[in-house]
Simulated assay, not measured.
Amino acid sequence: MFDCGKIAVIGGGSWATAIAKIIVRHTHHIGWYMRRDDQIADFKRLGHNPTYLMGVRFDTDEIFFSSDINKIVQEYDTLVFVTPSPYLKNHLKKLKTRIKDKFVITAIKGIVPDENLVCSEYFHHVYDVPYENLACLGGPSHAEEVALERLSYLTVGCCDQEKAQAFTDVLTGEYIKTKISSDVIGIEYASVLKNVYAIASGICNGLKYGDNFQAVLISNAVQEMSRFLTAVHGIERNITDSVYLGDLLVTGYSNFSRNHTFGTMIGKGYSIKSAQIEMEMIAEGFFGTKCMKEINRHWHVNMPILDAVYNILYKRISPQIEIKLLTDSFR
């Protein structure tokens, strides 16, 4: 029977904090890599993350903090990566310790820029982690709601179902329900695409399109997602499962969604730079849009929503014009 052993969280943001809260409740010990020593010092002094989800209290005696990623990797068996995807490569550049024998879980709902690889593929191709040692964490899961202990449903994807089950056993609790899946690549690509579609939804919101159109937009988005997933990883899946459709819905509609907020600002006339500065948080869909557009040049899947968001964000085409063209393609 597989045992996750000692578990460490890699990342210091809101989702990392929420995941750490879930895990430490079961294990009463975690390792936690944060890149800044001053953030670690403040965390120990205050008993909470000084920057994100500050209402979540921790017993810091149950946490081994380190700003040295190599020390964490050496000491822990299961590594849960929860860094924003644009920064993953920079964190890993410091890594001198082999991770191929570790159980690597990516809770990163993004894609690695420049490489155009979802995170499990990146760990496999660059760090030689075998697929049976790679898992992903997906599902509709705003960190803020998890921190408030509101009921949430998570899916652990891994080709080794015993390992997936072992990690779900660590997560499952009163307010966290879990299930397992073997569709790692599908879950990861769906997590990238739902951010793109949330930006589209936000742009339409900023342009004052109403709920009626938003419903049509999301209906078309799930069809577009299904076409792409079938092309790149044509296994049998139910696109209406919570890890696909559920995550799309919560990211597309919720006020907690950074990508929806970013899109709304673009729809209201903000420039890309001004929207990013004002948000002070990463909207991963901005980077994911470019990566997915480049990936789809190989697959040639019909993806009008992705194309529209790309044209707005990267070709600086007017949101009013581009969304009007998009509306004419819907039925």
Rank of each mutant, 00 (worst) to 15 (best):
M34W: 01
M34Y: 02
M34K: 01
R35T: 05
R35G: 00
R36E: 13
D37F: 03
D38G: 03
Q39V: 15
Q39A: 15
A41Q: 14
D42Q: 15
D42E: 15
K44G: 00
K44H: 09
K44N: 12
R45K: 15
L46K: 13
G47W: 09
N49C: 00
N49S: 05
N49K: 03
N49P: 00
P50E: 06
T51S: 15
L53W: 10
M54Q: 14
M54Y: 02
M54C: 06
G55Y: 11
G55I: 05
G55C: 04
G55Q: 15
V56A: 09
V56D: 08
R57W: 11
R57D: 12
R57G: 10
R57C: 12
F58A: 09
D59P: 06
D59M: 08
D59S: 12
D59E: 11
D59Q: 09
D59C: 07
T60H: 11
T60L: 08
D61Y: 05
E62K: 15
E62H: 14
E62T: 13
F65Q: 07
I69W: 01
N70V: 05
K71G: 07
I72W: 00
Q74K: 14
E75S: 14
D77Q: 11
L79V: 01
V80A: 01
V80P: 03
V80D: 02
V80H: 00
F81S: 02
V82S: 07
T83N: 00
P84M: 08
P84Q: 05
P86I: 06
Y87T: 08
L88A: 07
K89L: 04
K89N: 10
K89F: 09
N90S: 13
N90E: 14
N90P: 00
L92K: 05
L92P: 03
K93D: 11
K94G: 06
K96D: 14
K96T: 15
K96L: 09
I99H: 02
K100F: 12
D101E: 10
K102N: 06
F103A: 08
F103R: 03
I105E: 02
T106Y: 05
I108L: 01
V112R: 03
D114M: 13
D114A: 12
E115M: 08
N116M: 04
C119M: 13
S120D: 08
E121W: 03
E121L: 10
Y122C: 04
F123V: 07
F123N: 04
H125Y: 13
H125C: 11
H125V: 10
Y127L: 09
Y127T: 09
D128L: 13
D128E: 15
V129K: 08
P130E: 06
P130N: 07
E132A: 12
N133M: 11
N133W: 07
C136D: 06
L137P: 05
L137T: 07
G138S: 15
G138L: 00
